[in-house]
Amino acid sequence: MKTLIRLITVACWSLAMSAQAVGPDDANGLWMTAESDAVIRFAPCADLPAALCGTIVWDKDAGTPADTCGVRIAQLGRYDKDAWRDGWVYDPRDGKKYKGVVRAQADELRIRAFVGVEILGQTERLKRVASLPAAPACKS
């Protein structure tokens, strides 16, 4: 009986883990910042199709001097161990590039920016959105 219970437990645990498995395409799509002030589109890079790029496609400040529409904020070269790695992330607030890692799971995307080693970094959490807010619109 104990063996049967163990087998059922292992089977349930395996199913739960496979249901949460993520892949490289999970980061693709539109993602709203935690402050709801920008939407970033993650997709394969036009100039490097095997890499993942993040570009600001909606900004609450569109059309003003603070407009960041069209700014590439991430470029990551490879997917490994549940994350996009080997690239950079750019913070338009301070104008600096950092090493970066991007992880997506369900409706949350985590962008980790760091100098040196990942553990010493800072994480931004974004939420998936189905479409861009109506206004203000970024110029194409």
Rank of each mutant, 00 (worst) to 15 (best):
D94M: 09
I5Y: 08
D107R: 12
G87Q: 13
E108T: 14
G121C: 07
L109V: 04
V117D: 08
P65H: 00
Q20C: 05
A113H: 09
E108C: 10
Y90I: 06
T64S: 15
V22D: 00
K127V: 11
A21F: 01
D61N: 15
E118P: 00
R125T: 15
P133H: 05
A134N: 07
Q105P: 03
D80E: 11
A66K: 12
L76S: 02
V101H: 07
G29K: 04
P44A: 11
N28L: 03
V57H: 10
R41I: 07
S14N: 07
R78E: 14
I40F: 09
K99T: 11
R41G: 01
A137D: 09
Q75C: 03
G121R: 06
R85Y: 01
S18F: 10
V71W: 04
M32A: 09
D59W: 03
W58Q: 05
V101P: 00
A135Q: 14
T64P: 01
V22N: 02
P24F: 07
G70P: 08
D37L: 07
M32L: 12
W84C: 00
A74T: 03
S131M: 13
V129T: 14
D26G: 03
V89W: 00
C69D: 04
T55N: 07
A62F: 03
L48P: 00
K2A: 14
R128G: 01
R41E: 15
V57E: 09
L126W: 15
P49V: 06
D67I: 11
C69F: 09
V39F: 13
T68N: 15
P133S: 05
A137E: 13
M17H: 06
F42K: 03
K99G: 13
Q20N: 11
A134I: 02
K97P: 02
G116C: 03
V10I: 15
A34K: 12
V57Q: 10
Q105I: 02
A104W: 01
W13A: 13
G116W: 03
I119R: 14
V102P: 00
P92S: 06
V22H: 02
R125D: 12
Q105M: 10
A38G: 09
L7K: 11
K99N: 15
S18V: 12
W88Q: 05
R125L: 14
T123I: 12
V57N: 07
A27M: 02
K81D: 12
L15K: 07
D25E: 15
L30S: 06
A50P: 00
R41L: 13
V57D: 09
P136E: 09
F42T: 01
D26V: 00
